[in-house]
Every structure is written in C-alpha cells, then in structure tokens.
Design a protein around this nucleic acid. Structure first.
Lengths: 72, 72
DNA sequence: TTTGATTATACCAGAAAGGGTATAAATTTG
DNA sequence: CAAATTTATACCCTTTCTGGTATAATCAAA
C-alpha cells in the first residue's frame, strides 16, 4: 500500500540524504519501523510516526481526504 | 495531553450530535478507543485513527508543526 | 436535588506492533 | 560485471494497544 505519510517520509529522508538506518537512529525508532512506514503499513503507532515526522517539523494531523475518484 | 486529532474528533462528533458510543459504532472501533483518542492518547494505532477520521472525510497526514512558541 | 445520560478510569484477555537479528533482493558505485 | 551499500522480507520475543466489562465521576434535564 501507499500512504501519504510513508511517501512524505521517504521523500524527505532522501532530500536530507539520509539512509533508513540513519533516520531511524535520529528519530529514536527501530529500523524496521522506518521500513514499515515507508512501505505504507497502516497499523503503525501514532507516537512513533510523530517521532519521525518531528525531525522534519511535521506531525500527524487531520487532513481532508482527496476525492479518490475512481475516475470515469 | 491535548492533540490536534483528539480535539478535531471531539469537535466534529459534537457538531454531528453523536455520543462517543455512536461514533465508535459507526467507525467500527471500540468505545474505549474513542475515549482514548479524544483524551489525547499518543500511542494510538494509525489505522484505527483513520477509521474514525474517515467518517468526517479526513485522514491522518503530515502537517507543519506550529511554532510551539514558549512565548516570551 | 434527583434522575438519567454521557464521559472517565481501572482491570483482564487476546491480538498485534516494535525491536533485534539474519538473510535476500535491489540499488548504487567503481 | 563485481563489490559495496541500501532496502526488503522473515522469525522470535517483549511490550502494549484494543476491546469488553464494571464502576466512578461528570453533566444535563426536570
């Protein structure tokens, strides 16, 4: 699966020139967590997600859903 | 603690005239989860959070952190 | 205040996430 | 292509979240 949060982190991490391992260390989470997150795992824990987002001055918040429009 | 997600849900739920129990049922999560979320629990599971936000056409996404400015 | 409804807190059991490690696959570099 | 780095997948163990139930506290209405 592909999630907004996962894509966001993958992009920002690369822009920062970090490996998953380095990001994990900086964020204080396990390497496996970064992997799961970037790959779009849905059932992550919110506090861990926020630990990672915090490195980029972001946090998880409510955003309007895009019209996932099964375009005709 | 107070979180953006918790406050958002509490507000929207009340605007919709729903009890925590009704919201829990509609979202397909336990009542305890709604309580925890509205009270700002940090370590919720993201998929459950999204189940709830989905009822209001929202989802958890990366948002810029407000300058939590320890105002001088 | 009294009653009824809603919300908060505590305990238990089951399920699953997170971390670590090992290995495989993929990507990059020379 | 070969070597090295980075990323992906699988297994085990510990931790803890979630849901359910019960009870207390809070709030609203009469």
């Amino acid at each position: 699966m592909k999630t907004a949060l996962g894509e966001f982190i993958k992009l920002r991490r690369r822009q920062a020139g970090l490996t998953q391992e380095e990001l994990a260390y900086k964020a204080g989470v396990g390497l496996r967590f970064i992997r799961d997150m970037e790959q779009g795992k849905e059932s992550l824990r919110l506090d861990k997600v926020n630990q990672v987002l915090g490195l980029f001055n972001h946090e998880a918040g409510p955003v309007l859903k895009i019209n996932t429009g099964h375009e005709s």
